[in-house]
Amino acid sequence: MGANMLKVVSNVFKRKKTEDFKFRDAEFEELGLRLKKEIGSIFGRSLAIRELDSGSDNSTEIELVNLTTPYYDVERFGVSFVASPRHADVIIITGAVTQNMAVAVKKTYDATPAPKLVIAIGDDACNGGIFKDSYAVLGGADKIIPVDAKIPGNPPTPKEILKGLLALMKVIRNRK
């Protein structure tokens, strides 16, 4: 066994050093653990989300990406963003639904296997927001697909989005 191989093997087995994250927010952690428990019992450990932008101003997308970065890291709680609607339990829709996106929104919804849930995130997705009277939008997401939960905000913060996911769990439990 060469020196290199030895290095590789010892790397696999030796005690790992990770950074000590002191910056996490206690409230967020508590919400996350509650969500993890709910996802564990309702979805069998993981919640797969497909993000669908139907006409947002891009700030909601940024906050959704932020949920996956080190400060929040929601994969710890069983939440993952997936690349295809075919793999999704939940569609998160952002922005008022534009006329130009209407067909794509419907197709994405139809491509998601049932049972499926939809969360509208941000004021525009909830009710059309500032754009509701524009010729170029249909209005909120519920104009074209059924919506199970709404998280308002311009845009909602990562913590508010997490709270919204917890609220969705409650919606599901109440239905059962």
Binding site: G55, G95, A96, T98, Q99, N100, S134, V137
Partner: peptide
Amino acid sequence: MFWKHRGIEKL
């Protein structure tokens, strides 16, 4: 492009 056209200038 223009999938997200929201009609900002008219609005």
